Simulated scan of single mutants.
Amino acid sequence: MDESGNLWKLWIGFNAMFSAGLIFIGSINLYLSARHFQFLSCRPFIGLLSIATNAFFVWVGYQYMISAFVLSMSAPLLLFVTGFILIAGKPRGSNEK
């Protein structure tokens, strides 16, 4: 920061970067699940990383933000966890596509 920065510019910059990060995470997961599901299902690290990232967002929201943000980030977290459990519990056959 320098002397030209003010609270309003910092607030806009933070929200723009944070929103871009959320959009990126959602877009990558949507693309992988729609176009490359086999790739995604064979690599649990990607799902676990998405869950950990969303859990961090929920924690940050709980600590520093408003309850509406916590609720809005808890929904994707619940969906990521549910999807991960469903994928992890699905048997992997050699003839799946």
Rank of each mutant, 00 (worst) to 15 (best):
F69Y: 11
V70G: 04
N54R: 13
L78A: 11
G93W: 11
F80G: 01
S19M: 12
A68Y: 07
V81W: 03
L49R: 07
S67N: 04
R43G: 06
T82V: 09
L40S: 01
S41F: 01
V60W: 09
F69W: 06
Y64N: 04
T82H: 13
G26M: 02
G47H: 11
L40G: 02
V70F: 00
V70D: 01
G13L: 02
L48W: 14
G89N: 12
K90R: 14
I51Y: 04
S74R: 03
L48A: 06
F39T: 13
L48S: 08
I12G: 00
F80E: 01
L86C: 15
S67I: 00
P44D: 12
N95W: 08
N95R: 12
F18E: 08
V70E: 01
F14D: 01
G61N: 07
F56E: 06
I66S: 14
F56Y: 12
F84I: 04
L86Q: 14
F84D: 02
F84Q: 10
A16M: 06
F14S: 01
S50K: 09
P76L: 00
H36K: 15
F57V: 09
I25V: 14
A34D: 13
I51T: 03
A34H: 14
L40F: 04
N15H: 11
V58Q: 00
G83W: 13
S72I: 04
A52T: 02
G47M: 07
C42D: 15
N15G: 03
F45I: 12
P91Y: 06
S19E: 03
A75Q: 06
L79E: 02
N54P: 06
A88P: 03
F14Q: 04
G21L: 04
S41C: 09
P44L: 08
H36L: 13
M65A: 13
F45M: 11
S94P: 11
Y31C: 11
W59Y: 15
L32G: 07
A20G: 08
N29Y: 11
L77K: 00
S74L: 11
N95H: 15
I51Q: 05
L79H: 08
A88V: 05
V58G: 00
